[in-house]
Structures are given as structure tokens and as C-alpha cells.
Amino acid sequence: MLVTNTEEIPGKQIVACHGVVSGSTVRAKHAGRDILAGLKNIVGGELKAYTELLIEAREEAHERMQAQAAQLGANAIVNVRFSTSSVAAGASEIYIYGTAVTVR
């Protein structure tokens, strides 16, 4: 499945639109990671565990969105947008949405 964040796919023509598809996940970090991150907060720098966590969460949300698009019979998703919000202390929500289309 073709996925882009542009309104149209360069080199392809959109022939049908199937509406908005979306996928979301809410992830919390586990305590072990939180303690390590707390230590890392003293010296600063990248928190690799969190980076990985968010990447995994995005992948999952992405798969859910693609499954929804496949169900609608689309072969591409255009105009994809990401949004992140923290729903509770220590948990964040990843939401991905886009427009399912058929391209030729």
C-alpha cells in the first residue's frame, strides 16, 4: 500500500476516494524504563527507550490505519497526519489519520 503525506501521489492519478481512515494506540512506559530515564534526566541527552517506545507505538497505529484502508478496498493513503497527546502522566496517545484512495 502506498502511503504519503502529500495531497496527491506524484506520478499517479487518484481515481476514487474512500474517506478518512485512522489508527491510534495509547502506550505507557514501564517502570524500569522510567527509572533509567530519571537517571538520564540528570545528565541530559537522548532517551533511547522512549524513542523506541514511540516508534513502536507509531508502527502499530500505522498498521491499524492500513488495515482499515485495506478493508475499504483502497490501495493508497494520502495526506497522512500524525498527532501525539499525553492522556495521563506516563502515557501518550499516538493518532494517525489519512485519506484512503484508489490510485492508478
Partner: peptide, 12 residues
Amino acid sequence: VELVEGACVISI
């Protein structure tokens, strides 16, 4: 064409 991403969490 493909969607590409990059992410990074940095603490102070």
C-alpha cells in the same frame, strides 16, 4: 514514493 519518518526524544 514512500512515507519516511524520524523521531527522537531528548532530555535536558
